[in-house]
Write a protein that binds this DNA or RNA. Structure first.
Length: 480
RNA sequence: CGAGAUGUAGCGCAGUUUGGUAGCGCGUUUGGUUCGGGACCAAAAAGUCGCAGGUUCAAAUCCUGUCAUCUCGACCA
């Protein structure tokens, strides 16, 4: 990337409080995460960006396995008749479905939807796979891409095609389905907070915001550095909304045919967008160590001098042997200073500089991406110091993000306060439960209800909007 | 889908008003000097001007259409 690009970049990110959106776009581009494709609204994820996704995938999948789930693969094309079976669902998705109308040279008699989500196809298969209560539950997940014909797109946050995982489960009882819905919401919450270092609010979506066809939708909501909300994962309880039209029936212990209870839950490459916007700073991306494709980069200084390259490589090898993800940057066409800036832009948590001066003293210089603290460390101690440093960075990044979020969340008791608060944060308010109030708040302040937290300790008696008796504690924010 | 803007070398752009040899900076390649926070010198390579039609002796430039990207709105698990 050119020097001029860099200067422009610095200007953009310095001004990120005024133009966070431009800052985000620049970080995505300059950190070499993605590129645009000739296909409308789709992106090509580049190796560095995809490596983040692979780490998300690997660690999240381990959680799914731990909680008893198995992976499957379902077809990408869904016959229109299947999509039409659940009325709310088709109504919700119809505007953004892409259709296949021709196969080879043959015009199709029934057009095929490119999956926007796979509830319908899962249900169709589940109906064939389940007969007895002994077959239940089915706890399946798939990693795939889906397509939604979005009007406007934004890299990682909303693209026409995106990578995600969708879990679909069916259960014998409503209680079990609800338990599953909450369990997976918890998996998402823990993953966001412990792996991605992103604090989230979780709770139930309002009727207006819930998933098309769901009985109840729950979500984890993150806060970006401009105070806007990003829905980072959802978990739905469908009850028997799908199993009835799709006839997923089983013979229960009591000899009675019953409909199964269904759930679904999903997260997507949007999480990468969340990482960028939660942690990034004026120098670019800042990755939590657990998700960083490169956890530490070793940069030789004055590499032409005798022994430097070998010494630096030895340091990199020793850290690699610990199981860390290490990059040894021995490029000879850019200066060390260039490398420092580039790896900071890419968000690498720890940089290790190895030069002649260090080697003479059997030391290396370690620099933290989160604090920029420089520390001279004896080479004999790197095996203990570097892993500790990575842990400290992970913890510190979460604490910083949580402090930011807490400082940008406030209780509001009237519309003026709400307007002020959603202009750069979350507003916690009491709500009467009436959709008219949500509509009004959206119309006036372009903020939407995010979720109703599980701790419903009231903060007032009346609705923030209409003043009628309040029923729910709820978060409002502007959303991506 | 509505309003506005943009599309020229890998990246960022000028050139379009007034049609006439395809330009600049960075990057890239080669050689050399450098190397502890975005080095320098010299030489070189690289472009169907988004795409498709049209006008013209001649189109990056004018006309029509179309596709894509960005911003704002509407829509949106």
């Amino acid at each position: 990337m050119g020097k001029k690009n860099q200067q422009e970049f610095v200007q953009h990110i310095t001004a990120r409080n005024e133009d966070f959106s431009q800052w985000y776009t620049d970080v995505v581009r300059l950190a070499d995460l993605m590129d645009y494709t000739p296909v409308r609204g789709c992106m090509a994820i580049k190796p560095y960006g995809y490596a983040i996704w692979e780490l998300i995938q690997k660690q999240m999948d381990a959680e799914f396995k731990r909680t008893g789930h198995k992976n499957v693969s379902m077809p990408m094309l869904i016959p229109e008749s299947l999509l039409l079976k659940e009325a709310d669902h088709v109504e919700g998705f119809a505007p953004e479905v892409a259709w296949v109308t021709q196969g080879g040279t043959e015009q199709l008699t029934e057009r095929l939807a490119i999956r926007p989500t796979s509830e319908t196809i899962f249900c169709t298969m589940y109906a064939r796979w389940v007969q007895s209560w002994r077959d239940l539950p089915l706890l399946y997940n798939q990693w795939c891409s889906v397509m939604r014909w979005e009007k406007t797109t934004r890299p990682f946050l909303r693209t026409s095609e995106f990578l995600w995982q969708e879990g679909h489960t069916i259960h014998a009882t409503a209680e079990e389905a609800q338990e599953e819905t909450m369990k997976m919401l918890g998996v998402y919450r823990d993953f966001c907070e412990q792996v991605l270092a992103i604090p989230v609010y979780c709770g139930q979506k309002s009727e207006k915001e819930k998933f098309a066809g769901a009985r109840a939708t729950y979500s984890v909501e993150a806060m970006m550095q401009d105070g806007k909300a990003l829905q980072s994962g959802t978990s739905h309880n469908f009850g028997t909304n799908f199993s009835e039209p799709f006839e997923i029936k089983f013979l229960d212990k009591d000899g009675v045919q019953k409909f199964a209870y269904e759930t679904s839950w999903g997260t997507s490459t949007r999480l990468i967008g969340a990482i960028i916007m939660t942690h990034g700073d004026e120098r670019g991306l800042k990755l939590p160590p657990k998700i960083a494709p490169v956890q530490c980069v070793v940069v030789p200084v004055a590499a032409h001098k005798e022994g430097v390259l070998e010494g630096a490589r030895a340091v990199a090898d020793r850290l690699t042997a610990l199981g860390l993800r290490v990059e040894f940057d021995d490029r000879d066409n850019v200066t060390p200073g260039w490398k420092f800036n580039e790896w900071e832009l890419k968000g690498v948590p720890v940089r290790i500089e190895v030069g002649p001066r260090d080697l003479a003293e059997n030391k290396v210089v370690c620099v933290r991406r989160d604090t920029f603290d420089k520390q001279s460390v004896s080479i004999d101690e790197i095996e203990t110091v570097i892993p500790e440093m990575l842990d400290a960075i992970q913890t510190n990044m979460f604490e910083i993000a949580r402090t930011f979020r807490d400082e940008h969340t406030a209780d509001v008791f009237n519309m003026d306060e709400l307007e002020k608060q959603v202009n750069g944060g979350y507003a916690r308010a009491m709500w009467c439960g009436d959709q008219a109030c949500e509509d009004l708040i959206k119309e006036k302040y372009s903020a939407t209800s995010r979720c109703m937290p599980f701790d419903q300790t009231p903060i007032a008696d009346t609705c923030v909007c209409c003043g009628k008796p309040a029923k729910k504690l709820i978060y409002f924010a502007k959303a991506y």
